[in-house]
Design a protein around this nucleic acid. Structure first.
Length: 157
DNA sequence: GCCAACGTTGGC
DNA sequence: GCCAACGTTGGC
């Protein structure tokens, strides 16, 4: 089992929104980045752990846990001319973009702000793309050691 | 709102 | 295949 971090803008879709979806979960559509696509399509498995991260907001940080709730399948919003993230270069015969569904697991005891994560940018979290300047990946891998360390920060709260 | 960093596009 | 221009992301 692997671990991931998913960014989401809380104004658009927050951890509360994911919680409200309950067991049904939420198809994580709209990812239009090849690096992220490859991870989604080739590496994600049902049951993988997800750090749910709020970006582009007053206090960016990890706010909760989710899990990968489906295998990857084509992102149909790419075929939909009405959709915001429509991509004419993707079609059902040869889909270019994929998604997995996410399911809410729990909130963290308290948010772990990016500010705090960065305190460990020279230590246990050095390899997290999150702490590197200018990183824009909306989906990124998390090592078991990083996962444990983050949850350790939560336990210390 | 600003702006640095990045990925993508498209002309050549 | 290069690279400038552009649009987007996302912290601050």
């Amino acid at each position: 089992m692997a671990y991931w971090l998913f960014k989401s803008e809380p104004d658009a879709f927050s951890i509360e929104d994911l919680k409200a979806k309950g067991a049904a979960g939420e198809p994580w559509d709209g990812v239009r980045n090849y690096q992220a696509r490859n991870m989604i399509r080739d590496q994600m498995r049902i049951g993988d752990g997800v750090l749910f991260y709020h970006s582009n907001c007053a206090e960016p940080g990890v706010v909760g846990l989710a899990e990968v709730a489906s295998q990857a399948y084509p992102d149909a919003t790419a075929f939909d001319p009405q959709a915001k993230y429509c991509d004419p270069k993707s079609d059902p015969e040869r889909p270019r973009w994929y998604l997995v569904e996410l399911r809410y697991v729990r909130h963290l005891r308290g948010p772990i702000p990016l500010r705090e994560i960065k305190l460990h940018a020279d230590g246990p979290l050095a390899d997290m793309p999150l702490v590197r300047r200018g990183n824009r990946l909306s989906v990124m891998p998390v090592t078991p050691a990083q996962w444990d360390f983050i949850l350790g920060l939560e336990a210390a709260q």
